[in-house]
Design a protein around this nucleic acid. Structure first.
Length: 479
RNA sequence: GGCGCGGUAGCCAAGUGGUAAGGCCGGAGUCUGCAAAACUCCUAUACGCCGGUUCGAUUCCGGCCCGCGCCUCCA
């Protein structure tokens, strides 16, 4: 079986198979590191991570490999402006945000891409790509030292978003307004885009030498250069947020295919946007939430992950506080089911997150839930089937090998979704004082001194902990 | 204006040419010194509107209404 996924270019459901028969190679558009990524960015990254995990499982089953590349754009107008404002070098400025990004990704359970190339580390590749485009007549140098891609030279321009050329010009001009027509760059046509930007005073120390003078690469170029460097001129899949379709991916296709004469990405994967309380996220509405912010409110990163992946990727998802609560409850229910299965199977708590190699060849009773992922990455359906299977397993509890197969299958679903269902609830460190009170309370309760027990429960609440009794003991949870 | 997406119960969200998964919330119960958790059961005649095709449409076709996205900042 192979996974099937909707392709933006052909608008069809197409199978995901490695074109070279060995390695499925894919590239995701990553962050521009000038600030913290917001939860909308992370919806895209989480969804790409689920795709990555599904590909890993499929690859493990069919015996091929997966190669995942995520770029980091560490030079553009915003990063340059940010560094200047902070009074630090571009490299120091972007490194701080890259570290923050990695930290967020770890907390959200994102698998680390196999390569994470940075634009500033691949200037040579980008210059060579521009030179090739110049040599082949697809680009021209302007008098100011900038180089532009000539859209008229690429017949397929607009094929991803189906923008006829004339619409492109008229629409762009109308949307951009007259102000943009008098751009400081000298373009033959309004829609021609910049490949290499000539150095400007505001760029400070940020420039590289090139055959056309000092400057820096334009947006789009790094993705073409780096994806082809790591994955080859033609690779299996390229993804990002929907807003990237135009102009970013359209321009990537143009400059890549014009340079190589070969198809660029064979499959395009785009994730719909996250809305916040029914409105588009934007700085002006002040609804650009970050992971830090939500964690400070007491929400676990995994709750956010669950929420972000709980809607179909081609559907806008509306982020609400209520939804976050619902996600937390649903996740608890999943974990509760996992705990029951684990106990029935006689297995110890999983010490570490499962790897695709360690997963069973099929997911037993949870195989249908996995299959749903293969049909256009239908996570909502997968979750529905998982809950359904869990319910029927509760009705007829499996034992022995059946229980182990079910537990392993659920672990497989957990891996696919990036949710560690078998993890014991991550115990916040318990202060010694709270631990002592809790122990005292348990003693009091055991000798049926309920007045003392209740008093101590109250004291623990003051310290910020809820006592949850079990048959043979108790748990402490942050209140 | 061009291109595209969507409107399913209180909320979120799948799916199907033959009367519709799942989650959250709500209610009842089991358990429990209490509480919480967990588990069980229940609840809602839910498919935007109007036509058409069909034995039969929420599912196909057409029109309309409403919401949303992109059209060189943008995941």
């Amino acid at each position: 079986m192979s996974l099937k996924l909707h392709d933006t270019l052909s608008r069809e459901l197409r199978p995901l198979v490695p074109s070279d028969g060995r390695t499925f190679r894919f590239y995701c558009c990553g962050p521009t590191v000038y600030g913290p990524a917001h939860i909308g960015n992370f919806r895209t990254y989480v969804l790409h991570d689920v795709l990555r995990r599904a590909l890993e499982i499929d690859a493990a089953r069919s015996g091929h490999a997966v190669l995942h590349v995520l770029n980091i754009t560490d030079v553009d107008d915003k990063t340059i402006a940010g560094a200047a404002e902070a009074g630090v070098s571009l490299a120091d400025f972007t490194q701080g945000w890259i570290d923050r990004f990695h930290d967020d990704c770890t907390r959200l359970g994102l698998l680390r891409p196999h390569h994470e190339p940075r634009a500033t580390a691949h200037i040579d590749e980008q210059i060579r790509l521009v030179q090739t485009l110049l040599d082949r007549g697809h680009a021209y140098a302007a008098s100011d030292g900038s180089v532009y891609f000539r859209i008229a030279s690429f017949a397929d321009y607009g094929k991803l978003t189906r923008l006829p050329e004339r619409e492109l010009r008229a629409g762009a001009a109308a949307a951009a307004g007259e102000a943009h027509l008098s751009d400081e760059y000298e373009r033959d046509q309004i829609a021609d885009f910049v490949l290499w930007k000539a150095r400007k005073p505001g760029d400070g120390e940020v420039f590289w030498p090139s055959p056309w003078g000092e400057g820096r690469p334009g947006w789009h170029l790094e993705c073409s250069a780096m994806s082809m460097a790591y994955l080859g001129e033609t690779f299996d899949l390229h993804g990002g947020g929907v807003d990237l379709c135009f102009p970013h991916h359209e321009n990537e296709i143009a400059q890549s295919e014009a340079a190589t004469g070969k198809p660029f990405a064979r499959h395009w994967f785009h994730c719909a946007h996250l809305m916040v309380e029914g409105r588009k996220m934007s700085k002006s509405l002040g609804n650009l939430h970050t992971l830090d912010e939500l964690q400070a409110e007491g929400h676990a990163p995994e709750t956010l992950r669950y929420l972000l992946l709980s809607g179909h990727y081609r559907q806008q998802l509306n982020f609400t506080r209520h939804g976050l609560g619902a996600a937390a409850s649903a996740l608890d229910k999943l974990r509760s089911g996992a705990r029951t299965l684990r106990q029935a199977s006689g297995l110890e708590a999983a010490g570490s997150a499962p790897s695709p190699e360690g997963l069973p060849p099929d997911f037993g009773p949870f195989e249908p839930a996995w299959q749903a992922l293969g049909e256009d990455l239908d996570v909502p359906r997968c979750l529905g089937l998982t809950f359904e299977t869990l319910a029927s397993l509760r009705k007829s509890p499996p034992a022995g090998d059946d229980a182990r197969a079910a537990a392993a299958g659920l672990a497989g679903i957990g891996f696919a979704l990036g949710l560690d269902l078998f993890a014991e609830s991550e115990a916040a460190p318990i202060p010694a004082e709270a631990a002592r009170l809790a122990e005292e309370r348990w003693q009091a309760k055991s000798r049926k001194d309920f007045a003392t027990a209740d008093r101590l429960r109250g004291e623990l609440l003051q310290l910020g902990f809820k006592v949850l009794d079990r048959k043979d003991g108790y748990d402490l949870e942050p209140a």
